[in-house]
C-alpha cells in the first residue's frame, strides 16, 4: 500500500465518523452582481407604459390639457409624414447633426491625441479645455450667431463645440491609459513614432474614444433643439419649439419621440461600430 492509499483510507474513516453526527450542506454565498441581458423586457416596459397612458387618457384620468394621449401624438406624427414635412425637418436636423458632430469629434480626437502625446499641448490646452467644457453651449448661442451667422453656421457650431470637449477628454484619457509596456515594446523594436501612434496608441485608446462618441452624440442631439432656437425654419428642434410656443402638445410629443428614436438609432450605430472595432476584446 502506498502512502497515498493510506491517506485516502484515512479520509474515508473520517467521513464515516462525520456521518454519525449531523450533516449539513455548505450554505451558498456566491452568485449575483452579474446582470444578464433579458430580451423583450425593454420593449415590453415601453408598451406597457404607453398602453397605461392611452388608457388613462381615454378614461379621462389624465386630462388632455395636461398630457395628450399617445394616439394623438401619433396622429400628429402621421400628419407630419403625410404632409411631407417630416423629411424636411429631419433632413435639415440630420445635416446639422452629422456635420457638427463629425467635425467636433474629428477635431476632438486630434486635440485629445495632442494633449495625450505632447507635454506642451497638455500644459497649454488642458486647462483651457477644463475651463470651457462646463460652459453650457446654449448660453453661447447668441455669440455663435454673431460669429458664424444666423444660418447654418451657428447651428453647426453649437453642435460642433458641444461634441468637441467630451471627445477631447475621452481621447486624452484613453491615450493616458494605453499600456506603456506596449509603447516600450514598439520602441524596442525600432518602430517609428508615427507607427507607434497609429498602431499602438490609437487602437489602445479606441475603447475610450468610442465611449466618448456615445456621450458626444447624445449631447449633439440635446443641442440640436437649442441650435434650432434661433432662425431655423426647418428641423426637428424648430418643429418642437414651434409646437411648444403654440402649446400644440401633441406635436411637441411627436417631435420629442422623433428625437428619442434618433438617439436610439445613433446609439445602435455606435454599438455596431464598437462591435466591429473592438472585436478583439471578445
Amino acid at each position: 500500500m502506498t502512502s497515498l492509499d493510506q491517506m485516502s483510507g484515512g479520509r474515508a474513516t473520517g467521513e464515516s465518523e462525520a456521518s454519525s453526527e449531523t450533516l449539513r450542506p455548505v450554505p451558498y454565498r456566491g452568485g449575483g452582481f452579474r446582470p444578464v441581458p433579458i430580451r423583450l423586457i425593454g420593449p415590453l416596459v415601453f408598451l406597457a407604459i404607453i398602453a397605461l397612458w392611452e388608457a388613462g387618457s381615454r378614461s379621462g384620468v389624465i386630462s388632455n390639457l395636461v398630457l395628450p394621449a399617445p394616439s394623438e401624438a401619433f396622429e400628429a406624427f402621421s400628419y407630419l409624414v403625410e404632409s411631407g414635412q417630416l423629411w424636411r425637418h429631419l433632413s435639415a436636423s440630420l445635416q446639422r447633426l452629422v456635420i457638427g458632430w463629425t467635425l467636433g469629434t474629428a477635431l476632438g480626437i486630434a486635440v485629445g491625441l495632442g494633449i495625450g502625446l505632447f507635454s506642451l499641448a497638455r500644459a497649454g490646452l488642458l486647462p483651457l479645455v477644463s475651463a470651457l467644457f462646463p460652459i453650457p453651449k446654449i448660453a453661447l448661442l447668441p455669440l455663435f450667431v454673431i460669429w458664424f451667422g444666423i444660418g447654418e453656421g451657428s447651428k453647426v457650431a453649437t453642435i460642433l463645440f458641444g461634441s468637441f470637449f467630451p471627445t477631447v477628454i475621452a481621447t486624452y484619457g484613453g491615450v493616458d491609459n494605453v499600456d506603456r509596456t506596449l509603447v516600450r515594446m514598439g520602441q524596442s523594436f525600432g518602430l517609428s513614432w508615427w507607427s507607434i501612434v497609429r498602431k499602438i496608441i490609437l487602437p489602445g485608446a479606441m475603447p475610450a474614444i468610442l465611449s466618448g462618441c456615445r456621450i458626444s452624440a447624445s449631447i449633439g442631439i440635446i443641442l440640436l433643439v437649442a441650435a434650432e432656437m434661433i432662425g431655423a425654419e426647418y428641423g426637428v428642434g424648430a418643429y418642437i419649439l414651434m409646437a411648444g410656443s403654440l402649446f400644440a402638445t401633441d406635436q411637441l410629443l411627436a417631435g420629442v419621440a422623433i428625437l428619442s428614436v434618433l438617439g436610439l438609432i445613433v446609439s445602435w450605430l455606435i454599438g455596431r461600430l464598437e462591435r466591429w472595432l473592438l472585436a478583439w476584446r471578445g
Binding site: 506596449l182 478583439w280 476584446r281
Partner: peptide, 18 residues
C-alpha cells in the same frame, strides 16, 4: 539583422487587437 538588440518582455507585450 533588422533589430540587433531585441527584448522579450515578462508580460509578453502583445497587441491584443492583432
Amino acid at each position: 539583422s533588422l533589430n540587433p538588440l531585441t527584448y522579450v518582455f515578462q508580460d509578453f507585450a502583445l497587441l491584443p487587437w492583432r
